[in-house]
């Protein structure tokens, strides 16, 4: 396995669902204990096999609830697959939700260090990056203000500035390019293109054909938790549209044994 590689073999992620519909006191008491044993499971992802080579860029496409986010979280290591295997090698920068670890009470400065530690960087390593991060975020003196006083644009800018400076081998982006104003968005897009030329593996979730085609030559279409198509990005959109035309079966729930 090489650095920057992602290998997914027959992976599945199931969520447990508990129905909460109680009408009588007796039911309430009985249900209390019943839900400990039986629950329904919902496979958000099943039989997914994908191999992404180092430096490759892949767009993940699919309807809402198709399992895109679940797949990204599995690659990022936040979720452990219920079956199958997900292997990655190298540092992952998950731009799944920018500023996920921010504490609103702390200043921007403290949050930069805290987030760096969350990604496994030491204080010293973060000190070397600090000025660059602040410059990229264009926050200026606001860096020493508590985050709760930031506008949502400032919040997202600091989040992106951090995520772009962690020397990733694998970059995971979940539609975060909708942050900030037009100019900042352009800056982010350029930065991602830089990563592409530097040979960083790249997983991108998008609903826009245009931005996906610009960044990724390959695309996988997810349909109800399965990979329905894997190939060139141009063909992927045709396959996606075709699939969406059919009747939607809705999420499949099967009773757990």
């Amino acid at each position: 396995m090489r650095t920057g590689e992602i290998r997914i073999r027959d992976a599945g992620v199931s969520y447990r669902l508990y129905r909460e519909k109680v009408t009588t006191l007796k039911e309430a008491v009985v249900n209390r204990f019943r839900h400990l044993r039986t629950s329904e499971s919902f496979w958000a992802l099943r039989h997914v096999t994908l191999t992404i080579a180092p430096g490759e860029a892949i767009a993940l496409v699919g309807h809402n609830g198709s399992g895109k986010s679940t797949l990204l979280k599995t690659i990022a290591g936040v979720l452990t697959p219920s079956e199958g295997e997900v292997e990655t090698l190298g540092r992952i920068s998950p731009m799944i939700e920018l500023g996920a670890g921010f504490d609103p009470e702390l200043t921007g400065r403290d949050n930069v260090y805290l987030n760096g530690a969350l990604l496994g960087f030491s204080r010293k390593q973060m000190e070397a990056k600090f000025d660059r991060i602040v410059a990229f975020s264009e926050l200026g003196d606001f860096i020493d203000m508590p985050i709760k006083s930031y506008s949502s644009g400032m919040y997202a800018r600091l989040g992106f500035a951090l995520a772009q400076d962690v020397e990733p081998d694998i970059l995971i982006i979940d539609e975060v390019l909708a942050v900030g104003d037009e100019r900042f968005r352009e800056k982010c897009r350029r930065r991602i293109l830089d990563f592409r030329t530097a040979g960083v593996t790249f997983c991108y979730v998008s609903h826009s054909l245009e931005s996906a085609a610009q960044l990724c030559p390959r695309a996988a279409v997810l349909h109800h938790g399965r990979v329905a198509f894997d190939g060139a990005v141009e063909d992927a959109w045709a396959a996606y549209r075709e699939m969406e035309r059919g009747p939607s079966p809705g999420p499949q729930i099967d009773l757990a044994p």
Binding site: K73, G77, V78, G101, L119
Partner: peptide, 9 residues
């Protein structure tokens, strides 16, 4: 939990 859902730690 917000953090645990989003970052591997």
């Amino acid at each position: 939990q917000e953090l645990i859902r989003k970052v591997r730690v």
